[in-house]
Design a binder for these strands. Structure first.
Ligand SMILES: [Zn+2]
Ligand SMILES: [Zn+2]
Ligand SMILES: [Zn+2]
Ligand SMILES: [Zn+2]
Lengths: 140, 140
DNA sequence: TGCGAAAATGAAAATCATTTTCATTTCTGA
DNA sequence: TCAGAAATGAAAATGATTTTCATTTTCGCA
């Protein structure tokens, strides 16, 4: 559907290696710096602050393309806004303070196993998950 | 509407009914008829077709209220639209098909323990959590 | 090197779910 | 009965995302 995608599809006939266009490289660059999830709007603002010349439309288009090429993961915040991150960033979860908003990244090997087990038990494939813990931190 | 009546009769055994207004009862009635997830817009249209007099704003307001009372579950479709469904009383999580939207309620004792352990480890109190699994179901 | 086609870009408009505003109606309890 | 509170919904506002479309850039090839 997207131009970038059809281009990739066509050129991939022999190898998986292909180039991305300028905008996609910029988006990947900022995602790298962010190191985790960010929304399209946030990425756009970060790029602006970094002095990059790129339009919001193009940020959205690049993200779409990167997602459909499996280079970027797309999830949803609780309010429905889409958030993106580079595939391969280490997977983790969050412990968030309801009061002050401070966040702790936590490892979730237990939850990873639980997810896998539940999915298998019900015959689901291509499984992903979300898990966040909310509470009140020691300081609050 | 007979559907709503049966609902009222059933819910009277709980304390929840005492805090529900007319619109919330209507919304619960249509959710019962739907029997699964539906968006606010869809519920509104169904209510209209059923000849119910209720505004879209009120549907949204009722859903918000029911969600915060833990009577209704709120999830997100892949496109970010919120979807709702009547929820069992006990705490549970969901296994949702990305393709057809079918859902399975799952027990999460493992994840409950994980949550508690993580919270304790970091000194958090008054802890709650969210956890959903997304994948493709056997039928799809 | 130059040209025409294809791809990329982004500003502005459109879309669409959701929220807010606010005036009106309905309910409640003394 | 009546004043204040709660509920309602139409219309406007919001905000993310998509679409449109005119312009610019890149690419393939002679
Ligand atoms: Zn705190
Ligand atoms: Zn995980
Ligand atoms: Zn399915
Ligand atoms: Zn749980």
């Amino acid at each position: 559907m997207s131009m970038a995608m059809s281009m990739v599809t066509r050129k991939i006939t022999t190898t998986k290696i292909d180039f991305m266009n300028k905008s996609e490289v910029k988006v990947i660059g900022i995602l790298e710096r962010v190191g985790g999830f960010a929304s399209a709007q946030e990425l756009y603002q970060l790029l602006q602050r970094n002095g990059e010349s790129i339009g919001l439309t193009t940020v959205y288009r690049s993200l779409q393309s990167l997602v459909s090429d499996k280079i970027v993961d797309q999830l949803r915040r609780e309010d429905g806004e889409a958030i993106y991150r580079l595939c391969g960033d280490s997977h983790h979860h969050h412990l968030v303070c309801k009061q002050c908003g401070s966040t702790v990244e936590i490892e979730g090997s237990a939850i990873e196993r639980w997810t896998k087990a539940m999915a298998e038990e019900h015959g689901f494939r291509e499984v992903g998950h979300t898990a966040e813990i909310f509470g009140i931190c020691p300081k609050c």
